[in-house]
């Protein structure tokens, strides 16, 4: 029984999740528990991996996605951004990070083809040449996810057809315009890409984190721009959380809970009132707990 209804097709949009991508598991499972199901899943970077897990088997998503992120977070080769960065800058070894991630994705997706997915999947990458987003559909799911998550320095670009692709976060931190372009008439955004931290959190950070934080702010500003533009055309419900380090994968279990809390808050506020059976969210605009109005 669904009490909140959306104009169809409804897209679930998974932001470039940084290391908080596990929070999207909590958010998404709350939506599923409320009987809200998508017609397509769109994701960027680590969010694309979650979108693919959902499209592969919605009924088993809550277990399979937890297992995947648990595996990734306990893999030393992947959980230390410091180590990966130095390997990448040294011009060698970033291939190794990608090989490790490929191993986890192969285990999760095996030979699953796009035709076997429960609904269409769009994984967004950045085309290094044109500087535009790419939603290449031609390649295997694992290759598409690897290109969507090929964060500069940490992993090398992935070549798909005649394109050289890197992490989609560079141009589509929140791939909401790609969802609208694919025909979505409503969107729920699972957003773990918030870049704001508290003033006290930056007391102890070093020059490298200052640089990384500035980079995520820059990407975030553009994602907010995209959220505003999409909300002119369709209803955009954004479930946003900012708990957990953007750079440290090892905190997954608490992060999932924060994601659940955020989703419950947002979706409860959209629930029908005054004894009505359901509510339809059909007016274009921004809904949810993130108001994308800040500059740039």
């Amino acid at each position: 029984m669904t009490s909140i209804r959306f104009p169809r097709p409804l897209a679930f949009v998974f932001s470039g999740g940084l290391a908080r991508a596990a929070g999207q598991i909590g958010m998404c499972e709350v939506a599923l528990e409320l009987g809200i199901t998508p017609d397509l899943a769109v994701g960027t970077s680590t969010g694309a991996i979650n979108a693919a897990m959902l499209a592969k088997d919605p009924a088993n998503f809550h277990i399979a996605a937890r297992a995947l992120w648990h595996g990734v977070a306990s893999d030393k080769a992947l959980s230390s951004t410091w180590r990966s960065t130095f390997r990448g800058l040294a011009g060698k070894g970033s291939n190794r990070t990608q090989t490790m991630l490929r191993k986890h994705l192969d285990a999760a997706f095996g030979d699953v083809t796009r035709e076997q997915l429960a609904f269409p999947l769009i994984a967004v990458s950045t085309d290094l040449e044109s500087g535009h987003s790419s939603t290449t559909q031609g390649d295997t799911i694992v290759n598409t996810l690897l290109s969507s998550a090929a964060f500069p320095i940490i992993m090398p670009p992935v070549s798909v057809g005649d394109q050289l692709l890197i992490d989609g976060s560079v141009v589509a931190g929140v791939p909401v315009s790609q969802a609208v372009a694919a025909g979505a008439r409503s969107v729920i955004v699972f957003d773990t890409g918030a870049s704001a931290v508290s003033e006290s959190e930056i007391d102890e950070i070093g020059w490298y984190e200052v640089l990384a934080l500035a980079f995520t702010h820059l990407v975030r500003g553009q994602a907010d721009h995209d959220l505003l533009l999409a909300a002119r055309d369709v209803p955009v419900v954004t479930i946003s959380m900012d708990q957990g380090s953007p750079f440290d994968l090892r905190t997954a279990p608490e992060i999932i809970h924060h994601g659940r809390d955020a989703a419950s808050g947002v979706l409860l506020a959209l629930s029908p009132r005054h004894g009505k059976d359901f509510r339809t969210v059909n007016k274009p605009g921004s809904y949810g707990n993130h108001n994308p109005t800040s500059d740039s």
């Binding site: 990448g88 800058l89 011009g91 970033s94 950045t126 290094l128 040449e129 500087g131 500069p152 320095i153 090398p156 670009p157 050289l164 890197i166 560079v170 141009v171 820059l218 990407v219 500003g221 553009q222 740039s296």
Partner: peptide, 21 residues
């Protein structure tokens, strides 16, 4: 230039982000 070298990718990303912003 389009290249798989980490530093060239970073320079390219810098171009892309700047133009987009």
């Amino acid at each position: 230039p389009i290249s798989t070298s980490a530093t060239k990718v970073v320079a390219r990303v810098n171009n892309i982000l700047n133009a987009r912003q």
